[in-house]
Nucleic acid binder design. Structure first.
Lengths: 208, 208
DNA sequence: AATACACTACCGAAATATGAGTATATTTTG
DNA sequence: CAAAATATACTCATATTTCGGTAGTGTATT
């Protein structure tokens, strides 16, 4: 029996998945948590083989939580359960060294298959996630992997709050020129045409 | 036994909820659909008392679907199951005359309670949804109920696509002045400070 | 020591957006 | 039909963004 924990802030989903998995022969649900923080608290005393981790959670998202999980229990397996097919999230998930990525549109059979495969030592990425990943690598070859500096991210967030360069400068105690330079660099790095593009970029990346 | 149908594009959620509800005495799940369109197709021949309807679906969202459902089966009850607590969505749901609004963070007991209450003829709105609704009405008293004209929505969408007034004008075969006027009206109606605010507004309203 | 990078700051100019008005044609609606 | 709402177009003025440069300073890495 594979000991599985479920982390998802939607109680109905958590309970439903738990009932489904409980009916499977190879799987045993040993814990349900409504946030990554709760899981992290319980983890040291938890006997668990694999964690099904939601991404979109309010307090701490799954991808941030994964490294923390591995710090506490380096041998535990982590499989991401996500709603949407965001290429950045998949890339982040891979970078966080999770062992699998599933969509909530999957069937229960696929979840069990993924759990079993991951426990056997192989990673499991759903077909859609896999395709998205391949596409991302292609796009990377084509040219751009957008890497923002911490300061740029800071400026980006303020742009998203409807602030103009003047206000950003005042808020960060820098010159307007500097704020403008950062904005220009943001535009050129992201390939956006204007601030509208920046907001969309920021939202896609989860910066706001 | 109350005959219930479930509409949600996440198969795991759909199946999980179905299993949960199947174990309840008063409820019988008579159908599961992964999109509103599928449900609408099946509806004429479906004996159903109440439909649990997800909001965030790719093809047709729940709130758009509700009126179509009532056209086909005027007596059926509709309860919205949503992930997030967006005040606009709740308002839209109320406007669409659905009979209930639940969050996916609810417990299974609350879902059953809601189903039973709605079937008894009363509406059921979760505590959080109710509070949000009260707040919205307060905000309405304070001043603004933002109503955009179809043309304004059209301009708004193009703004969200990183187009400037010149390009919008060309695209819509109107003068730049007109495009600019629409933009300014959008800013003043929504109370936003710049285009960045407009994008966020548009996203919140589901225009993009 | 040299190189690279991030952050900072500036200049000048062109393109766009925003603010405050006015005005008219068309469509919708009571 | 008349009134109201909507879409259209304009002027003048100012603010802001965007684009093209250049460049010093500190820090980390090779």
């Amino acid at each position: 029996m594979i000991k599985v924990a479920i982390v998802d802030d939607h109680r109905l989903f958590r309970q439903g998945l738990s009932v489904i998995l409980a009916s499977k022969e190879s799987v045993e649900v040993v814990g349900k948590y409504e946030s990554a923080i709760e899981l992290l608290k319980a983890l040291p005393d938890l006997e668990v083989d694999l964690i099904l981790l939601d991404i979109d959670m309010s307090e701490m998202d799954g991808i941030t939580a994964a490294p923390e999980i591995f710090k506490i229990k380096p041998t535990v397996k982590v499989v991401i359960l996500s709603m949407h097919l965001s290429s950045h999230k998949i890339q982040d998930a891979v970078a966080a060294k999770v062992h699998g990525y599933l969509l909530k549109t999957s069937s229960d059979e696929e979840v069990v298959a993924a759990i079993e495969q991951v426990m056997s030592g192989k990673d499991y990425f759903s077909k859609e996630a896999h395709e998205q990943l391949v596409e991302s690598f292609r796009a990377r070859d084509e040219g751009q992997e957008v890497e923002l500096t911490p300061r740029e991210i800071e400026i980006l967030k303020l742009v998203c709050e409807e602030m103009n360069s003047q206000e950003i400068a005042e808020k960060l105690f820098i010159s307007v020129h500097t704020a403008e330079t950062h904005r220009r660099n943001l535009l050129s790095k992201t390939g956006c045409r204007n601030s509208v593009g920046l907001v969309r970029f920021a939202m896609d990346r989860g910066y706001c």
